[in-house]
Design a protein around this nucleic acid. Sequence first.
DNA 1: GTCTATAGGCAGATAGAC
DNA 2: GTCTATCTGCCTATAGAC
Lengths: 209, 209
Amino acid sequence: MNIHSNKRGEPVEVKKEKISRRNKDIRAMILDAALDLFSTRGYFSTSVHHIQKQAGVSIGSIYHHFKNKEAIAKALYDDLVAMMGQSMAEIMASGENSEHRLKAVCAHLFALTESSPKIMQYILYARHREFMPDELPICSSRPFVIIQDMVREGMERGELRQMNLTVASASVMGAAIRLIYLSLDGVLEKPVSSYLDEIWECSWKSVAV
Amino acid sequence: MNIHSNKRGEPVEVKKEKISRRNKDIRAMILDAALDLFSTRGYFSTSVHHIQKQAGVSIGSIYHHFKNKEAIAKALYDDLVAMMGQSMAEIMASGENSEHRLKAVCAHLFALTESSPKIMQYILYARHREFMPDELPICSSRPFVIIQDMVREGMERGELRQMNLTVASASVMGAAIRLIYLSLDGVLEKPVSSYLDEIWECSWKSVAV
DNA sequence: GTCTATAGGCAGATAGAC
DNA sequence: GTCTATCTGCCTATAGAC
């Protein structure tokens, strides 16, 4: 799976296209290596030389595509949050009732935890604010805002109890997020998805009318 | 508040006592400075020189009391986890019913978040595994194990529904922990304690019989 | 035990050839 | 656009005076 894309998506002439493809490849290779290293070793224990070596490109190339090390982390973060926001938006648009959509969110997050633990690790665990000081907290990012919208709509429709919106969101998602952390820490006996029905029964009881 | 103590607590003769007190002071001053800097700037953005300057001691003194920078972080972590374990043990020993004790745990964590956000920040957010590679995940530490014991006991007594122990623990604590993260991220309108009753109502519904 | 001064190493970033 | 070689600075840790 390659989640990274070039900034420019418009069609280009043949000669340029080859260059553009090469750009795209290199950018993606750098970001793939960065994701792997940042999520396993951590941002600060990963040097640009490590990324260079694992991606199979030169230092010069890296600094041609990214202003500095921090910009690599930021681009990676933006890509992953955008991807997650896209998934949330699709679930939001499905038109199902609140319980169905919110459970689908949990199911999606669990599936992502299993298929791409490094992505989950990076988004949840990387302490972005330590090396991306200007970044808003993750809870202000698009995917989390969409989840809150689902909760709000559910309350308006009378599917969730009337209560503080933040409390309701924390309550309906907190347990699932906690299980994801436990899964990433390697302390769950079984794959996290196998707990979906049981944890969702609890989560839904906590906010249902 | 001074949470740090010397390794040796036994009585000593007068001359040695003065030296020991001095030791204790310096060790505590180093750890206090480290907590402040690690939780605000982060471990990797904090140099030993920063700690030295803020603690008002010399580099030599720091390396006399601690083997290296990592050992400072480890000592700090151990102190804080031990303190938290002590609080949990006291709640566990109170002899109240499960709901009362588990709510007391949430109340205590909320209060600590408000009175000492840096402690909470450090324990929850510091990505210990990036700079303390041999450390067990936080969920295997004493305070979390005690919480799980409360949940287990509650199930045995029939106060909680029968279910997987990990799921129940995640469910009963997940929402509160989520709120603590939100509070530390500065996105809550009011102090986190003010949400205690509302969030606990949700959490308890999620696991109660 | 505490201090200052400094060694030694490595990381981030740049210069400039091709 | 990509590469190699290198610079510069900071950081951890130590040496050695007092």
